[in-house]
């Protein structure tokens, strides 16, 4: 598990939820993005990916879509800077 990416996702998801006046439940690697666990919709998820690219300089989807359902699976798509 890539802890720093996980923390970054938690921080930015919290911000996106707060902007909508929603509170984020405790996040785990198994939290699923779009099946009702989290108060976010697909536009929020798209926003998260843009922000992650801004903050990490990485776009794991540049070469096409990669399947992910949970927070842990998304975190694993980013490489941690050494």
């Amino acid at each position: 598990m890539t802890d720093s990416i996980f923390a970054l996702i938690a921080e930015e998801l919290g911000r996106i939820a707060a902007d909508k006046g929603e509170a984020l439940p405790p996040l785990t690697a198994d939290s699923r993005f779009l099946d009702g666990d989290l108060p976010i919709d697909s536009l929020d998820l798209a926003t998260l990916l843009v922000v992650l690219e801004q903050r990490t300089g990485q776009d794991p989807f540049r070469e096409g879509f990669r399947q992910f359902t949970t927070v842990g699976e998304l975190a694993a798509l980013y490489t941690v800077p050494a």
């Binding site: 779009l34 099946d35 697909s42 998820l45």
Partner: peptide, 28 residues
């Protein structure tokens, strides 16, 4: 999320949606 739940519950056979819907639906 609600659409994915309804799809499973009623075992739908025909789904028409936008590409953006399908990307999110696959995830849900």
């Amino acid at each position: 999320a609600a659409l994915a739940q309804a799809a499973r519950r009623h075992a739908v056979t025909h789904v028409s949606g936008t590409p953006s819907f399908w990307r999110a639906f696959l995830m849900a």
